[in-house]
Design a protein around this nucleic acid. Structure first.
Length: 653
RNA sequence: GCCCUUGUAGCUCAGCGGUAGAGCACUCCCUUGGUAAGGGAGAGGUCACGAGUUCAAUUCUCGUCAAGGGCUCCA
């Protein structure tokens, strides 16, 4: 059931927020020339915060609804008007500032200025004060329709070059809005009737940023001032609270606080150091991933990190992506290249022997660490780095196997993502672009194969006509996190190009040599980036099976340490990760430390527990679980670990 | 790469033209304590790096590197 290209759809989702594509973070490209796939980033940051009911903190205050601009006519007017007030205030304080555009965003507004001196964040205070003054004057906003000539004359009188350029692109009728007697701006509206409808206590100027005129880096660099505005101070407070919530979940902060990973200046930007806790989690994720792949009929590959550069000449990457690759290195008489992707290696592995149609489909997977040059200033925690690990796989198959293979990939994708509690997806099918290679018949077959698989899976999707790579159609999948942000991770791409370039073949039933279909796919995309997304999704409160330290034993007195040690040994035998807090602090402090480090289960051990062979359990998500027998805890912990459960399966508690 | 901001103890941050402070963490001592911070003492910094101005630079200026917020890039 293909759907029209408007309004994305998701299979398990409830009300989907419209996607506002902002900046892509992270970037991943699969094989093949032209296949660079930008990875989406949090696309709608303002969606409802779903508080995790099992978590403490977050005092339950009645939710203040925060509509988006596109959902609220009144907010649209407010923000539209507010950007003019901002512009007027700026021109009052900085007479040399030229105005450009000032649109609304889903959570606020901004305005771009050309000012001889860049604005500093300190200037915002003064501008805000001036805006409050303008609001207090209850200035009327009045719409005027004027002729093009008159508009031009008015603009020339003010010497506003950008406005003139805007005017050139406008259709008649030309409308402008006056703001009081001595300021006006080109604008289609709508606006509030007068600034008295704006609440001086419900707006904030948030930041200054550079932005290019018309988004073109060859044109003037402008100063952009971001702001937000609401109907009431309560809404503003709620908005700021949600920003705080996103900050609380920031994987860079959690990575530091929970000692998961770091990025070291001395080593260079965009290169990740996995600390023991993060490394343990990564290993758990990788083990799960491998297990799931073996179960689905994949085999594993390991391939080199560098190789003769000719490989990337053959693949065509060098022609298109040299700028995104680490530079070549001279070794002996040959030039080597640090690998920016895995596919040529898998292709060579395929080509290393003559393949029969009886072998197909061949499914090969690799957690392959690749290195790509990212420009300074674009790195972002784990989300965008220079070295990352793709959970890459390639399937070589017959044309008639496409449907089954894609369905298999979709099932595996769901199985893996849902294990990390990502259960809402948004799916895109991208079809043949104008400039492309390959026979019509092959494209047709491949696209039908993708559609058939999606239909059999029962997933709704959006079609991006002509949005495919030149070498084949693809399916992209976005996941929704706990606070409603969408992230693109998984991608499935058909490739008619690479088999061609490397001259891949198999021997068909009739003895002829045929070209296999190649499918690239990744589920996490980048393991590093997925780790960041997953960390933010859980806000660092990892499920029991995944937590680096699952249980912390808290001895109330030194006398019970021997008991704790014997329990720890038993847990270790059962494959459960535990530690003993030997700091000697009082229980209250031990609990506090354990909670702050988001340990899923704290086990209090006092004289009573030691004597009875029990523990007093405190679950981070479930609170006090009371006394539990030692054997019961070990069994529950073993089970939760093996079955990848979020919580201990403790019977009647 | 571009614009703004930032870089001071392991962390969070204060400070200032006259070579440094707090809280937490850490070490030691006292406390043997029952569900989110017991008390005391101590140790810990080339104030990111390099240059310049100055009698004197952590402080001012410039550059470099890195981080944060954006823009751009991501056929």
């Amino acid at each position: 059931m293909p759907q029209a290209a408007t309004g994305g759809s998701r299979h398990a989702g409830s009300g989907t927020a419209p996607i506002r594509a902002s900046r892509p973070l992270g970037c991943q490209w699969f094989c093949c020339v032209g296949s660079r796939t930008p990875y989406g980033c949090p696309v709608s940051a303002s969606a409802e915060v779903k508080s995790n009911p099992t978590l403490p903190a977050a005092e339950a205050s009645p939710p203040v609804p925060l509509p988006k601009t596109s959902e609220s006519p009144q907010l649209l007017k407010i923000r539209h008007s507010m950007s003019h007030v901002l512009a007027m205030a700026v021109q009052k304080l900085f007479p040399a500032a030229k105005v450009t555009i000032g649109p609304w965003t889903e959570t606020g507004f901004y305005y771009d200025f050309d000012n001889p001196e860049p604005f500093s964040e300190g200037d915002l205070k003064a501008i805000k004060k001036e805006m409050a003054k303008l609001i207090g004057r209850r200035l009327p906003l009045e719409r005027l329709e004027v002729s093009r000539a008159e508009a031009e004359a008015r603009i020339r009188a003010q010497n506003e070059p950008y406005k003139l350029e805007i005017l050139e692109g406008l259709q008649d009728p030309i409308s402008l809005y006056t703001l009081g007697d001595d300021w006006w701006d080109l604008c289609a509206g709508p606006h509030v009737a007068h600034t008295g409808e704006l609440n001086a206590k419900a707006f904030e100027l948030e930041s200054v940023a550079g932005a290019y005129w018309r988004g073109d880096e060859n044109r003037a660099q402008l100063q952009r001032i971001y702001g937000t505005a609401w109907e009431t101070p309560e809404q503003l407070a709620e908005y700021q609270h949600r920003k705080q919530e996103a900050l609380r979940r920031d994987h860079r902060r959690l990575g530091k606080d929970l000692e998961l990973f770091s990025i070291e200046d001395e080593a260079g930007a965009g290169l990740v150091f996995w600390h023991p806790r993060g490394a343990r989690m990564r290993l758990l994720i990788e083990d799960f991933w491998r297990q799931a792949h073996f179960a689905d009929g994949y085999e594993l590959l390991y391939t080199p990190h560098v190789a003769d550069i000719s490989l990337w000449k053959t693949s065509g990457h060098l022609d298109f992506y040299a700028d995104s690759m680490f530079g070549p290195m001279q070794v002996d008489e040959r030039e080597y290249q640090l690998k920016p992707m895995n596919c040529p290696f898998h292709v060579l592995t395929y080509a290393s022997s003559l393949r029969s149609y009886r072998e197909l489909p061949i499914r090969w997977a690799e957690l392959g660490t690749v290195y790509r040059y990212e420009r300074p200033g674009v790195m972002h925690g784990l989300m965008r780095v220079r070295g990352f690990t793709q959970d890459d796989a390639h399937i070589f198959c017959l044309p008639e196997q496409i449907g089954d293979e894609i369905l298999g990939v979709l099932n595996l994708t769901e199985a893996i993502l849902s294990t990390f509690d990502f259960k809402n997806y948004e799916i895109n099918l991208s079809t043949r672009p104008e400039k492309s290679i390959g026979d019509d018949a092959v494209w047709d077959l491949a696209t039908k194969g993708l559609i058939e698989a999606l239909d059999r899976k029962g997933w709704a999707y959006k079609v991006d006509e002509g949005g495919g790579a030149f070498y084949g159609p693809k399916i992209d999948l976005k996941i929704e996190d706990a606070i409603g942000r969408m992230w693109q991770c998984s991608t499935i791409q058909l490739d008619f190009n690479l088999p061609e370039r490397f001259n891949l073949e198999y021997v068909a039933a009739d003895g002829s040599r045929q070209r296999p279909i190649m499918i690239h796919r990744a589920i996490f995309g980048s393991l590093e980036r997925f780790f960041g997304i997953m960390t933010e999704n859980y806000a660092g409160d990892f499920p029991f099976w995944l937590a680096p330290e699952q249980i912390r034993l808290l001895p109330v007195t030194d006398e019970v340490i021997a008991y704790a040690e014997s329990l720890q040994a038993e847990l270790r035998q059962a494959g459960v990760r535990s530690s003993i807090d030997r700091s000697g602090d009082r229980l209250g402090k031990l609990i506090r430390n354990g909670e702050q480090q988001k340990i899923p289960v704290l086990a209090v051990i006092g004289a009573q527990e030691a004597e009875q062979g029990s523990l007093s359990l405190r679950s981070r998500r479930q609170g006090d679980l009371g006394a539990v027998a030692r054997a019961e805890l070990v069994n529950a912990a073993r089970q939760a670990t093996e079955q990848r459960l979020s919580l201990l399966p403790l019977g009647a508690h």
